[in-house]
């Protein structure tokens, strides 16, 4: 009777150890850590030309309530080949991702960039409004 009890106990312990090792996923689909932060905003914006020098005529105006970024660029800026740079709140990420130069030459159709919070629960779309100096 005792030996049967021991065998059952061992099997139960082994099974339990297998299941107890399964852990929750703390990374998102990009392999980034999901945190508990819910802050979700753009704190700074930069726009670089093909030579990686700024093409802004003045600092970008970021309205975190209206969720807009207004930026005025220098005369003659080639907006077909620019590199936007966003500074976000801690643990946030941007959608769509910026992987290289972008074509932002269509001024009539403002580009939307969505900021996603660290806990991946808050999403705030920011409208990028560009105009020439």
């Amino acid at each position: 009777m005792t030996i049967y009890f021991k065998i059952i106990l061992t099997v139960l312990l082994l099974t339990g150890s297998f299941f107890s090792c399964e852990k929750d996923s703390f990374v998102d689909e990009d392999g980034l850590l999901i945190t508990f932060r819910s802050e979700c905003f753009v704190s700074n914006f930069e726009l670089l030309g093909a030579d990686f020098v700024t093409v802004r005529a003045a600092p970008a105006v970021i309205d975190t309530v209206a969720q807009t970024i207004d930026v005025s660029v220098l005369f003659g800026t080639d907006l077909k080949n620019v590199y936007p740079q966003f500074t976000l709140a801690t643990d946030c990420k941007l959608d769509p991702k910026i992987t290289g130069k972008m074509d932002l030459s269509n001024l009539a159709d403002s580009k939307i960039f969505t900021v996603v919070s660290g806990n991946r629960l808050v999403r705030k779309p920011y409208k990028l409004i560009i105009k020439y100096q």
């Binding site: 093909a50 030579d51 220098l74 003659g76 080639d78 077909k80 080949n81 074509d103």
Partner: peptide
């Protein structure tokens, strides 16, 4: 590809 046909605002060492 898609480069413009002008370059302005040039300075020394550019």
């Amino acid at each position: 590809t898609d480069m413009p046909n002008y370059a302005i605002g040039l300075r020394a060492e550019a």
